[in-house]
């Protein structure tokens, strides 16, 4: 029962904040709604008993990605933009396409026999297991992702700084 309430609560939070995020006329508000939405996703992870994942979601997404986005918004803000239209003229086809996507997925879900699948509650915290898996079975993808992050870091610096050098 608690799970049901939590799920619907977080689902409503995610969907409402996501909707507000895409329709918010101000990009700054939009980013804040994104943070809220991601927080809701973290809550869903909690409902699914993935506490460690929920932590990462909050730390990395809300703490890093959204904050970075806010920084960039601040750096690129112009007075002109505040009043200008934040949406292009593709709204109607976009709504049709996304509606069709959702319809297809949901109709697939409704046609599917989910049987007796219910969440198996894993009582103990799975953080230790996650750590073991990452450093044993998934060590190679783990290392590759770390290299990817390093490359992204260097790439981001060179893109932003290289532009400065060219202007000199």
């Amino acid at each position: 029962m608690v799970e049901t309430i939590l799920f619907y609560g977080f689902a409503a939070l995610i969907l409402i904040s996501a909707l507000l995020m895409i329709i918010a006329p101000n990009i700054y508000h939009s980013a804040l709604f994104l943070a809220l939405c991601l927080f809701g996703v973290a809550g869903i992870y909690v409902v699914l008993n993935s506490y460690f994942l929920a932590g990462i979601q909050v730390l990395v997404y809300i703490g890093a990605v959204v904050v970075l986005a806010l920084f960039v918004i601040n750096l690129t803000r112009r007075i002109l933009d505040v009043d200008s239209d934040q949406h292009n003229e593709q709204l109607l086809p976009a709504v049709i396409i996304s509606g069709l996507t959702a319809f297809l997925i949901i109709s697939a879900v409704l046609k599917t026999n989910w049987g007796t699948m219910i969440a198996h509650r894993v009582a103990q915290d799975n953080t230790a297991l996650t750590g073991r898996l990452l450093l044993n079975e998934f060590v190679l993808p783990f290392e590759i992702v770390s290299v990817l992050l390093l490359a992204a870091l260097i790439g981001a610096i060179s893109i932003v700084a290289g532009d400065k050098g060219a202007q000199k």
Partner: peptide
């Protein structure tokens, strides 16, 4: 699915 659909609308319509 709903979150995905909302994301698609955002991608296709946000100017920023």
């Amino acid at each position: 699915a709903l979150l995905f659909a909302i994301g698609i609308i955002g991608i296709l319509t946000r100017r920023n």
